[in-house]
């Protein structure tokens, strides 16, 4: 017995484009996260540098990663919604 989704879903015309965009944004974030891990792992002294409002790189980078995730997520959603609407209009034509 094969399953369908819990709720009936319409056709997603922008599926491929959204997947590609998601992959790109994921890679960008993964590089930034990976850099944070490498600095923490081997260049810990760099995290002591005061870089903003008297705060050190550890605090600024850490908080930055959290804020960036929300900002990138919002941008991703805006672009996805625009793609979905555009491609749905084109498909209906």
């Amino acid at each position: 017995m094969l399953h369908g989704p819990a709720a009936e879903l319409g056709v997603d015309y922008a599926s491929k484009q959204k997947t590609r965009l998601g992959l790109i944004l994921f890679l960008v974030y993964a590089v930034l996260y990976g850099s944070f891990v490498i600095i923490g792992l081997s260049y810990t002294h760099l995290l002591e540098l005061r870089v903003f409002a008297g705060l050190n790189l550890a605090v600024v980078y850490g908080m930055g990663l959290i804020v960036l995730a929300a900002v990138m997520g919002y941008i991703y959603s805006l672009i996805c919604t625009w793609m979905e609407d555009k491609m749905e209009r084109e498909a209906k034509k």
Binding site: G4, G22, F26
Partner: peptide, 18 residues
């Protein structure tokens, strides 16, 4: 959550039931 949003959320919604 970045992994969840960019890679997993929508495809999983498309595939799953419960």
């Amino acid at each position: 959550w970045v992994v969840a949003l960019f890679l997993v959320a929508e495809p999983l919604k498309r595939l799953g039931k419960f």
